[in-house]
Amino acid sequence: MAVQTNTNKVAKSQSIGKYFKNVKAELKKVIWPNKKDLISYTTVVLTTCVMVSVGIWLVDTVFGKALHQIIK
């Protein structure tokens, strides 16, 4: 039993090492955006978040007022 446990520990440590090697190799393949692209992408994401938030707020307000009128 003890031999199997040690073997499992060695196999796990090798698989963890292999995992991090693979992560490093994959990160080298990533094409990182330049500053101009990053600012552009960030602006699009923030604008979209604001627009969706305002839309949800408007729908919530309309349904809230309608529900309030129905309950009255």
Rank of each mutant, 00 (worst) to 15 (best):
M1F: 15
M1C: 14
M1Q: 15
M1L: 15
M1Y: 14
V3L: 14
V3K: 15
V3W: 14
N6P: 00
T7C: 02
T7R: 12
T7F: 02
N8G: 00
A11Y: 11
K12R: 11
S13N: 13
S13L: 13
S13E: 09
Q14G: 08
Q14N: 07
S15N: 03
S15E: 12
I16P: 00
I16Y: 02
I16E: 04
I16W: 01
I16D: 04
K18V: 12
F20Y: 09
F20H: 00
F20A: 07
N22E: 02
N22G: 08
N22C: 03
V23R: 05
K24Q: 15
A25S: 09
A25Q: 06
V30H: 11
W32K: 08
P33E: 02
P33D: 03
N34Q: 11
D37P: 00
D37I: 10
L38Y: 07
L38N: 06
Y41A: 09
T42I: 05
T43I: 09
T43M: 08
T43D: 04
V44F: 01
V44Q: 11
V44L: 05
V45N: 03
L46K: 15
T48A: 12
T48F: 05
C49F: 14
C49P: 00
V50N: 08
V50H: 11
V52W: 05
V52Q: 03
S53R: 07
G55N: 04
W57V: 01
W57P: 00
L58G: 05
V59Y: 07
V59H: 05
D60R: 13
D60K: 03
V62D: 01
G64T: 11
K65F: 06
K65I: 11
K65G: 08
A66T: 09
L67Y: 14
L67I: 11
H68N: 14
Q69G: 15
I70G: 01
I71T: 12
